[in-house]
C-alpha cells in the first residue's frame, strides 16, 4: 500500500484533482474564477497554505493530542492564511483587492483541512509535502482552466488580452454565479467521460 513520494505528488494532478475529483472547496472555485488571473492567484495561495500546513501538521502529528487536533489544525492553517494575506497585501495588492474576502476564507476551505486530517496527520513529512504540492498544483490548474473558460466566453479576454474581434458580444452569463455552476458541471462531466474506461 505504501506509495512513493512521486505517486503522492502525481495523484493530486489527475486521480484526486480538486475540485473535480475531490469535490471540495467549491466556494472559492465558484466565486473567484471570473478570470484566469484570479483563478491562478487563488490556486497558488491555497497551494502555499496546503504545503505549509501539511508540513507542520505532519511534523507535529505525534505531539498533537487527538482530542484537540481540529483546533490545532485550525490554528496552523489560520496562521499560514494570514501570512498569505499579509504578503499579498504587501506585494500583489490588485490581486488582493480582486480576491477580497476569499483569502481569509481559505481557513475554512475543506481541501486544506481535509488534507490535514486525512493525510498529513497519518503520514511522514516528505509524502505530506508531496501531497500538499500535488493537490495545490492540481487546484491551481483546475481554477485556471475554469477561469480561462469563463473569461474567454464571459469577457472575451484571456489574461486581460482580447481574443476575439471587436464585434464579439460577451456572454455575460459566464462571469455571473450561475455560469460558474454550469461551467463546473460541464467540466466535471467531461472529466468523467475522459476518465471512463
Amino acid at each position: 500500500m505504501a506509495k512513493t513520494v512521486t505517486q503522492e505528488f502525481v495523484k493530486g494532478l489527475w486521480a484526486e484533482i480538486p475540485p473535480f475529483r475531490l469535490v471540495l472547496g467549491l466556494c472559492p472555485t465558484l466565486a473567484v474564477t471570473k478570470t484566469v488571473e484570479d483563478g491562478i492567484g487563488m490556486g497558488v495561495a491555497t497551494g502555499f497554505v496546503l504545503v505549509c500546513s501539511n508540513l507542520l501538521i505532519s511534523m507535529l502529528r505525534n505531539v498533537i493530542p487527538s482530542k484537540v487536533r481540529i483546533a490545532c489544525y485550525i490554528i496552523v492553517v489560520a496562521t499560514f492564511v494570514t501570512v498569505v494575506e499579509l504578503l499579498m497585501q504587501a506585494f500583489t495588492y490588485p490581486l488582493y483587492l480582486s480576491l477580497g474576502i476569499f483569502i481569509p476564507l481559505i481557513v475554512v476551505n475543506c481541501i486544506v483541512l481535509g488534507r490535514a486530517e486525512a493525510f498529513a496527520s497519518k503520514n511522514k513529512i516528505l509524502p505530506s509535502i508531496a501531497d500538499g504540492l500535488g493537490i495545490g498544483i492540481g487546484y491551481t490548474l483546475s481554477l485556471a482552466a475554469l477561469g480561462a473558460v469563463r473569461e474567454v466566453f464571459g469577457s472575451g479576454t484571456f489574461l486581460g488580452n482580447p481574443v476575439f474581434g471587436p464585434s464579439f458580444q460577451p456572454f455575460t452569463f459566464m462571469v455571473q454565479a450561475p455560469g460558474a455552476f454550469v461551467c463546473l458541471g460541464l467540466m466535471l462531466c467531461l472529466m468523467n467521460l475522459a476518465g471512463k474506461k
Binding site: 498533537i64 483546533a71 490545532c72 490554528i75 496552523v76
Partner: peptide, 8 residues
C-alpha cells in the same frame, strides 16, 4: 492538550 494549544 492545554500545553500544546498554548504553545501553538
Amino acid at each position: 492538550m492545554v500545553i500544546v494549544l498554548t504553545v501553538l
